[in-house]
C-alpha cells in the first residue's frame, strides 16, 4: 500500500486531546514560475481539512495557497483517550486522502 500522505499524532493530556498533523503536499500557489520553462506552475493546494473525533467534526480548516508546503496543523479539543480521530483533506484538483487513528496510536 502506498504510504499515507498524512502523519497524525494524538495525545491525551488533562482531558484534552492534542492533535498534530503533517500532510505531504506541494501546496503550489499558481503564482510560482518554473525556472527552466518560465511557465507558471498550476495551482495545487489543499482547500479543506476536516478533523473529526468519533465522527463529529472538531475542526474544519479552509486553506489557501498561503499555507506552507507540507502543511502542519496542531490544535486540541476536549475529549477522551478512547476517541477515534479522523483527518481528511481535499485539494483544488479534487484529490483527497484521509487517515483514522485511535488517540495515542502511532
Amino acid at each position: 500500500m502506498a504510504k499515507s500522505t498524512i502523519k497524525l499524532r494524538t495525545k491525551e493530556k488533562g482531558g484534552k486531546i492534542q492533535v498534530k498533523a503533517l500532510i505531504t503536499h506541494p501546496m503550489e500557489t499558481g503564482l510560482r514560475k518554473d525556472k527552466k520553462t518560465g511557465k507558471k506552475i498550476p495551482e495545487h493546494y489543499i482547500t479543506k481539512v476536516v478533523v473529526e473525533a468519533n465522527g463529529k467534526p472538531v475542526l474544519t480548516a479552509d486553506w489557501s495557497g498561503s499555507i506552507s508546503k507540507n502543511p502542519f496543523l496542531s490544535f486540541s479539543y476536549a475529549g477522551s483517550k478512547d476517541d477515534t480521530v479522523k483527518l481528511t483533506w481535499t485539494d483544488n484538483t479534487g484529490k483527497s486522502d484521509s487517515i483514522e487513528k485511535k488517540v495515542g496510536e502511532k
Partner: peptide, 25 residues
C-alpha cells in the same frame, strides 16, 4: 500576500480555539 486570506478554521464542539500552522509570506 497576493491573496491575503490564508486560512479559516472553524471549531466544532469542545475544540480549543487555538491553532498552529505554517504559512508562506
Amino acid at each position: 500576500n497576493p491573496t491575503p486570506l490564508a486560512a479559516r478554521y472553524t471549531f466544532g464542539e469542545g475544540a480549543v480555539p487555538a491553532i498552529k500552522s505554517r504559512f508562506k509570506m
